[in-house]
């Protein structure tokens, strides 16, 4: 039995003038103990999906279950066994760290002591400030407290909706370290994020865009499926370099990527052609190297494919 299963989930939002489709037939399974990432920009439908799985919203079509319980029929059971951390850190700003935790423990009919082992590693960092009001904590600390609150009843499935959005890179790293440790305790974790580079940290990921899943696989396999040749190119004049690249017939796509431009070629084994082409222009300190794609390269590629399918 999968820990979480979604079958063809469709969700509409009605506004005054039109109907917006937030989810267009989402299906996937998450196995027990898996760290499953849902990666996609804002508007991909991540939050709607999480809300449907956590029984907060009703889907318009399709079925879903968590630990075998149906999200509509058995919503009461599900509410007992899942932990949920919504997009905004949902804490009581005017309660102290300890009061927040105690409160969430009691509403889940448990105590801090009873499940202390689950949160211990995270809570130790918070303990020196347990008398401090949650509103006065730094972003990273709030995030940790919210995670503790979601874990206090030792849930069998943990839903984390964009826990790292707007959090700095250091706290983000720390957060993923915490998730890895939680995974070792056998908790199934579903986490959504807009940061593509976090995909590599998951067992499997679903890449989502505009209510559709572009691909579901392990990060390595997603990268494997990127069949085209990819080059990283840079020179001292990055902007004109990009224009030059885009004007080259053999180039399918070229875009900024950190310190380099990433260049997707139409055909295999064209490194020499690319070098020859670029040498015609005055590109100082030109550097060209064949590279492995990043998840973000795959996402861009998949987005374009899905866009083309739509156009046809």
């Amino acid at each position: 039995m999968p820990s979480v299963s979604a079958k063809n989930i469709v969700k509409f939002y009605e506004t005054k003038n039109d109907k917006i489709q937030a989810l267009c037939g989402i299906s996937f399974n998450v196995t027990k103990g898996e760290l499953f990432g849902i990666i996609g920009p804002d508007g991909a439908g991540k939050t709607s999906l999480f809300r449907i799985l956590t029984t907060l919203l009703l889907a318009d079509k399709g079925a879903a279950s968590v630990d075998g319980y149906d999200v509509v029929k058995d919503f009461k059971e599900i509410r007992k066994i899942v932990g949920y951390m919504p997009g905004r850190f949902s804490l009581y700003q005017d309660l102290t760290v300890e009061e927040n935790l105690e409160f969430f423990a009691t509403i889940f009919n448990t105590t801090i002591q009873q499940n202390y082992d689950v949160i211990k590693e995270i809570y130790i960092q918070l303990e020196p400030f347990k008398k401090r009001r949650a509103g006065k904590l730094s972003g990273g600390m709030k995030q940790k407290l919210a995670l503790c609150c979601a874990l206090i009843h030792k849930p069998s499935v943990l839903f984390l909706d964009e826990p790292t959005t707007g959090v700095d890179a250091v706290s983000r790293n720390e957060f993923w370290d915490m998730l890895k440790k939680l995974k070792q305790q056998g908790i199934t974790i579903l986490v959504s994020t807009p940061y593509m580079n976090e995909a590599a940290l998951c067992d499997r990921v679903a890449l989502m865009q505009l209510g559709k899943i572009l691909s579901i696989n392990s990060p390595a396999e997603i990268i494997n499926q990127f069949k085209k040749d990819l080059f990283a190119v840079r020179s001292s004049k990055m902007l004109s370099l990009l224009n030059d690249l885009k004007n080259f017939n053999e180039v399918e796509d070229a875009y900024f990527f950190g310190a380099y431009h990433h260049v997707v070629m139409k055909h295999k084994n064209e490194e020499q052609d690319l070098k020859n082409y670029l040498s015609k222009y005055s590109n100082d300190n030109l550097e060209i190297k064949n590279i492995q794609p990043d998840i973000e390269d795959c996402f861009i590629e998949l987005m374009k494919q899905s866009h083309e399918i739509e156009l046809h």
């Binding site: 920009p41 865009q209 900024f256 987005m303």
Partner: peptide, 23 residues
């Protein structure tokens, strides 16, 4: 934080706009 949550393609389009403005 102008590009928070924006998809990777649009994020790059946004940066081209920044470059143009800088130019």
């Amino acid at each position: 934080e102008p590009t928070g949550g924006v998809d990777p393609i649009t994020r790059r389009e946004f940066w081209s706009m920044i470059y143009k403005a800088a130019e």
